[in-house]
Amino acid sequence: MALQVTDLTISFGGVVAVNGMSLSIEPGEIVGLIGPNGAGKTTFINCVAGAYRPSRGTVQWKGTELRGLAPHSVIRQGVARTFQNVASLHDLTVLDIVKLGAAARGRRGLAAVADLWRGEAALEAELHETVLEPLGLADIAAQPVQTLSYGLRKAVDLARAMASRPELLLLDEPVAGLTVQEGQQMAAVIREVRDRRRCAVLMVEHKMDVVMSTCDRITVMAAGARIFEGTGPAVQADPEVRRVYLGEP
């Protein structure tokens, strides 16, 4: 077991956003997390990534407890996340962002002072080969991020997460807002990341065709808890899921 989340609970004021949620992911597995709006999917990812501090439950990652760690410490454990809405970062180029991703697991403290004297040519070459080329971003590496389309910015966000050499990727709606073609490319990239690096993936996504074609297993959330878990066809066949999520009577 790579990731084992047990009984995760967090509330905001009187709203219990995630209520006793459990989920596990094996190494190299792609798990889809689906559910209606407000089910607590993004909140769940935020809890695992350290952005929120859950009030109850455990987040075991390869024998380490992630609950209570700050986001930058979670990344150092090999768990990286992407964002649903990518921020526009004015002055930074694609390569800058990817370097920051790599730095998330890099040296710290006074060792950072040595950056002033060290060249970055070797790092740039490595990032080109391992991240930018596979994601088709090599040609635009020197462009400021804010000049890129929404789809490309999402790819940059994924590249940034991948540059930290994660063993678990948390993807928050990687395909939302993309064109059909961009969405298919993104899904192919996600599968390739898994195949090439044996990286486990947890993706929150609404586009069912992408979820069906990408995920090995699907977990359905509603009202902060898991209501079903299984393979794509099983999820589609389950009457409870159809009622809650697909809106059938």
Binding site: A51, L92, R160
Partner: peptide
Amino acid sequence: LVVRENELVAKGMG
């Protein structure tokens, strides 16, 4: 630069 633009994003980026 990232901290200047958005601290939440900066945190999420590690």
